[in-house]
Structures are given as C-alpha cells and as structure tokens.
Amino acid sequence: MRSITLALAGLLMLTAAGVRADETIYQPAPMVDNGLNDLTKPSTQHGMLGLGYTTSLIENTGLQNGVLVSARYFTGDKWYALGEVEMATYSTNTLVADDSVNVPDDSTRYALGMGYSLLQGNASVSGKTVMPFVLAVELAAGEQSFGDTGGLYLSGGISTQVHWKKYWGALGIRQFNLDENAQPLINSEWGIQWDIQLGFWF
C-alpha cells in the first residue's frame, strides 16, 4: 500500500513538473523590426464630385435651367476624365414653331468626356493666402432626351476651377450640339450653356 502511495505521489510530482516544464518552454513571438509596420499610406484623391446649376440657351427656344451632377477623375498632371448628368426643365417658356405652340418636355442628359488643364496657377485675393486654380478645356459626348425623343449630345467648353483643401468651385461655359432628331418639333441643333458648380474631393 505504501509503495502504491509513493508511486502515485511520484507520478503526481512528475506530472506537476511536466506542467511546469511546459510553462517554461521559451516560445518567442516573431518581433522583427524591419520598419515596414511604420510605413504610412497617404489618402488618395481620385477626383472631384460636383453639384451645379446650369442655364442653357438652345437654338429656337428660351432659357432652360437645370441641375448638373458631375464627376472628374484625375488621370495625370493635365488630363482628367469627365462624367455628367443633367436634369433641366423649361420653366415658363413656350415655343412657337410652325405656327403651333409647343411646350417641350423636361430634358435629361448624360455625357462622358475629358478635360485638359490649359492653365494651372495660384489665385490670390489678399496676397496672404493662395488657392490653386485651373482653366481647363472640356469635351464630352453623350445623349440628351426630351421626353420621348433623344439624340447624340456633343459639347466643348471651358471650365475655370478653384481648388480649396476640401472643396472646389467652378464656372463653366460650353457650346453643345444636339442631334437633329432630339427636338424635331422645334428644330434645335445647338445651344450655349453656363454653369456654376461646387463640390468636394473623393
């Protein structure tokens, strides 16, 4: 009986020792200071999103006011890609064509294009703070629809942009051409548009 007790006590001690031995096994965590953990990635400015107000003067029609949503994606120092969606409405204008009065439908258009920065520089009013400005030529192609009709839309114009740290603003003017099928009743094939836009970087 005593030998059994001693044997059990010995086994218990060995087990306890084994547990302690496991606990004291040196298991170092890989701590290699290669500096890679300190690297920081800057945030990326892909482009600019904007919301604008437009006024268009279309051939044989009155003024048309609209809302413009635009996106510009930077592709390099000078060029950027352009995407636009515009919703415009004839407010109080009625049109007389071929001795009949036509009230054109509201128009919707989308266009994809490109911009090229002709001038880049600093704008300053007080001389103490400066803001980068860009004067760019923009070309776009898309479709414009007037209710049940629509056609190819092509535009070319100039956009003057001021860049703040978080926001940007732009004034633009463009001439656009409409497919002759877009507004068959009023026979409009071109127009001029002014726009003012404000937006932010994304």
Partner: peptide
C-alpha cells in the same frame, strides 16, 4: 498643386522629416 505648372510654394531639405498625407495620380 499636383503639376509642374503650379508654382513652387516651399522648399525642403532632403533630411527634413516629412510625411505624405495625400496622393493624386
């Protein structure tokens, strides 16, 4: 601005500790 056409507004020495906070292109 992010182009050679924008004017120089500051100069730094190579050993000045700087960090990049934004990227455009």
């Amino acid at each position: 601005g992010p182009s050679e056409a924008f004017p120089v507004i500051a100069e730094i020495t190579p050993d000045l500790k700087v960090r990049a906070i934004k990227r455009r292109g």
